[in-house]
């Protein structure tokens, strides 16, 4: 599986684990506005995702993220930086 697909799958699983229900998610889904996640829920979701990917996703990098695609891109950049 391509790296971005793995990241995307982990994002969906982490989101579902956070909201505790199955979700219909597309690349342009807005994490806060469309999924109704408050600021704390978003941080908890990121924490879950960090553990799944064994990667640190600093909160300051999340500030710019609005959609699922934004988040995939940010994570790819972080993985690139870590190399």
């Amino acid at each position: 599986m391509a790296q971005s697909a793995v990241i995307r799958r982990n994002i969906v699983e982490s989101l579902e684990a956070t909201v505790k229900r199955p979700l219909e998610i597309a690349g342009n889904t807005k994490i806060a506005a469309d999924l109704g996640l408050d600021s704390l829920a978003i941080m908890d979701f990121i924490m879950e995702l960090e553990d799944r990917l064994d990667l640190s996703i600093p909160l300051n990098r999340i500030a710019e993220v609005e959609t699922i695609d934004d988040l995939v891109r940010t994570i790819e950049e972080l993985k690139e930086d870590a190399k």
Binding site: M43, M47, E50, D54, N60, A63
Partner: peptide, 27 residues
């Protein structure tokens, strides 16, 4: 305070030293 600065911000599970250690190891 952490938002006002320019450092990378990492969050560990509440009162969990092992989780803190794990996150420090990641960086």
């Amino acid at each position: 305070g952490v938002k006002l600065g320019n450092a990378a911000v990492h969050r560990f599970r509440h009162n969990d030293p092992e989780d803190l250690y794990k996150r420090l190891r990641r960086i």
